[in-house]
Design a protein around this nucleic acid. Sequence first.
DNA 1: CGTCTCATTGAGCTATATCAACATCCGTGG
DNA 2: CCACGGATGTTGATATAGCTCAATGAGACG
Lengths: 243, 243
Amino acid sequence: MNRLQACPAAAARCSKCAVRRLAICAALEESDLGEMDEIMTHKHLDAGQVLLLEGDYAAYVANVLKGALKVFKSLPDGRTQLLRILLPGDFLGATSRDHYGYSAVALTDTELCLLPHRPLVSVFQAHPELEESVRAHIEDELAEAQEQVLSIGRKTALERVAGFLLARRQHALRVGNSVDPLKLPLTRSEIGEYLGLTTETVSRCMTRLKTKGVISLAPGHAEIVTFNDVERLSDLASAGVPA
Amino acid sequence: MNRLQACPAAAARCSKCAVRRLAICAALEESDLGEMDEIMTHKHLDAGQVLLLEGDYAAYVANVLKGALKVFKSLPDGRTQLLRILLPGDFLGATSRDHYGYSAVALTDTELCLLPHRPLVSVFQAHPELEESVRAHIEDELAEAQEQVLSIGRKTALERVAGFLLARRQHALRVGNSVDPLKLPLTRSEIGEYLGLTTETVSRCMTRLKTKGVISLAPGHAEIVTFNDVERLSDLASAGVPA
DNA sequence: CGTCTCATTGAGCTATATCAACATCCGTGG
DNA sequence: CCACGGATGTTGATATAGCTCAATGAGACG
């Protein structure tokens, strides 16, 4: 928990940041980055390590620099529901709630940029564009959650899986990752936890999509997906606003 | 669509507002209310009238003054999923998205306070506490959506219905409405659309709760619920953060 | 009083969960 | 290099929660 360690090259960290153009700081001019640098700390998590638990005091917001985390809620009996997958550039945290409403655990080795709540809110005063950016990220998160409600509440298993694949594809396009073979950041069982399904159902849906020829799965590497017919996949996902 | 009509008693409307202490404006001092009054317009909707549709240009945010609305998303084939029920004091809208991600329709005769996007954002500059309040409302909305994802993704029908009743009860307590007999703002089929269930399943769950003696339903008035054993209902809802 | 909407209840159906077997990959240690 | 064990994924057989379809009743409203 080396949260407040000094870093010799402090003023330079933010301007060299891997997610400079994706994270909330993208709203800031180069010249104002120093203010973030001052309050920011880096944190490393190994795969499986817990970042925060539901109910924890919400002292920090975080930006993902490298790796991946899952954000989830659990019921007392252990049933768990994934809410988000965090990848580089993604934002985590609440700025006006006392406690986190979810838990977050690293899926792989992960690097984070932690911003303590109070100092961050102070920066808002001088830089409304940063606050605007945080608000935009939260609104994106809300839109994602609402899309997930629609998906889990009203779509069939196949539609959900198809939609999930398309969403991963869109994300990869947006951040410039490989899309031709796409690497899924989640196991089948995690995909199930995200979509409100079981491992087996996810696996069966993947097989069905493969059988239909819409996607291909690298033999022996279930996490590598190739899209053969995005339009067809999109139809199968029942995506889109009604006419 | 008398959106921009002048109102003779303009400066007084906000200070007399029925939801003065609930809505985003609660963050403002009495003396600053005039700034809201200036940009605000009232709007009336009859039951069933559409306020906005998914994909509409997001020109306004709104506060509910009176009545009730449902917020929902639909699939092209008509399946629809309720996302929220808006009651007096509730906030609707996005401040940094171009288009609404959902539709909103009045459930009953409804009075709204509309705030056009751009002018509102201008008020933020002079009154960061207002922006903070908007952010807090959006974060509450996000927490609600994430709770809904957990509920729909992982809970049984009975748990969802029990949780729904408790949430309505909590809301009534918070805003000071009657709780002893509680009046539900939704029909069985709307409750189903909110919980990812069918009318029949909601009805059966209600009956089961009644049979268990946990609630009572006013004969001939299915929307009037009495809570006989809140603790038991809470157990049945599998609520709460894991130990 | 019809007629409409809403709620309830029953009977059967089906999508998905559950339980179980097996395959594959990967790392570890002999 | 190979044998082993533990994840992870796939597939099959069966169970079941919740859906669909259908009938009926009870208020509300003209």
